[in-house]
Simulated scan of single mutants.
Amino acid sequence: MLLGKLVQPACSLKKLSSPGVCRHFWGWLNAVFNKVDYERIQAVGPDRAASEWLLRCGALVRFQGYEKWQRDYNGLPTGPLGKYKIQAIDATESCIMYRGFDYLDGLEHVEEIKLCKCMYIQDECLQRLSQTMNLQKSLLRLEIISCGNVTDKGIIALQKLRNLEYLFLSDLPAIRERETTVQILKKSLPSLEVKLDLE
């Protein structure tokens, strides 16, 4: 990515040699990537705008009716407005954060989401996800892996995803009451299959 090649060396300069300064800079840049452009959503539709956001942040998307994952921002397919609908999101090691979640509101066909090693995903993100009306209807499978800021509170919030069929939870050190949390989910979502890989 050209931006990375231009910007990264700046952190090795003497005045930016402190790791804290680099982290602050990248946090700022990631926040810029997550800023919601409501005019863009209106202009190109929610699925295209959300695809651009997700790929800009390092996530992948798969469109309904297609097997191929979209990885390249510049390679997103073009076509009539609304032709490509997001069916699956793989946010592994991406920088998606709460401030960008408004992009999810207009998505009506998302069945699968994978959140793996997402440093900015926290309870508020899962609460926001579960309050998204379209996702409450469409989301069937969710994986949350190695997201260190997710606690029981965030997992319990997922009970609003009324059609969720499969939930995989792995390497979530902030989960303290896993049995109680799973029981709460199962009570609200009796048909939910929960798979745990938690210490």
Rank of each mutant, 00 (worst) to 15 (best):
Y103Q: 07
T151F: 01
L135A: 02
R99H: 08
E111R: 01
D123F: 09
N30L: 03
R141V: 06
R71N: 05
G100I: 10
C125D: 09
I155P: 10
I175S: 09
K153A: 15
Y38L: 15
Y103C: 10
H24F: 12
L142F: 04
P190Q: 07
A174K: 12
G58N: 05
Y98W: 12
K68N: 10
L129P: 06
M97T: 05
I96G: 04
M119S: 11
K137C: 12
G4Q: 14
V36Q: 11
Y98A: 14
E165Q: 13
Y120T: 08
G45N: 04
L158F: 04
R99F: 04
N74R: 12
Y73A: 14
G45Y: 06
L158Q: 05
V150F: 02
D47E: 08
H109P: 02
I145G: 02
L140N: 02
S146M: 03
R162D: 03
R141K: 11
G82S: 05
K83F: 07
M1A: 13
T181S: 06
R40T: 10
C22T: 09
K186E: 12
N149R: 14
I41W: 07
R23M: 13
A31S: 15
Q159S: 11
E199I: 14
S191N: 12
Y120Q: 11
E199D: 15
V21E: 08
L169S: 05
N74E: 14
F101T: 10
P173D: 06
L139Q: 04
S170I: 02
E177D: 12
R62G: 01
N149I: 07
P46T: 08
L140T: 00
K68H: 12
E124H: 10
L115Y: 04
K153N: 15
I175E: 02
E199Q: 13
R48F: 12
H109G: 01
K195R: 14
L172M: 03
F101P: 04
S138T: 03
M97F: 01
A43D: 13
P80Y: 12
Q183D: 13
G27R: 15
K117Q: 10
M1C: 11
Q131E: 11
L167G: 07
W53E: 02
Y38W: 14
W69R: 00
L161K: 00
Q42R: 15
K186A: 09
K83W: 03
L139H: 00
Q127R: 08
K187T: 13
R99G: 13
V32S: 07
S146R: 06
T180K: 15
R176Y: 09
A157I: 05
E67Y: 02
A31G: 15
L185T: 05
K35S: 13
L158N: 05
Y66F: 13
N74Q: 13
V194Q: 05
K68T: 06
L6T: 11
V61G: 00
L104C: 03
G65Q: 02
P9F: 05
Q87M: 00
R178C: 11
R176W: 10
S191I: 06
K85L: 14
K117E: 07
L55K: 07
Y166E: 06
A50H: 02
S138H: 01
A91R: 01
W69L: 00
R56K: 15
V182G: 06
W28Y: 13
H109L: 03
F168D: 01
K137Y: 07
C22V: 04
G82R: 09
E52W: 05
V110F: 04
L161R: 01
L13E: 11
L29F: 08
L129Y: 03
C116L: 06
V182I: 14
A174H: 08
T151R: 09
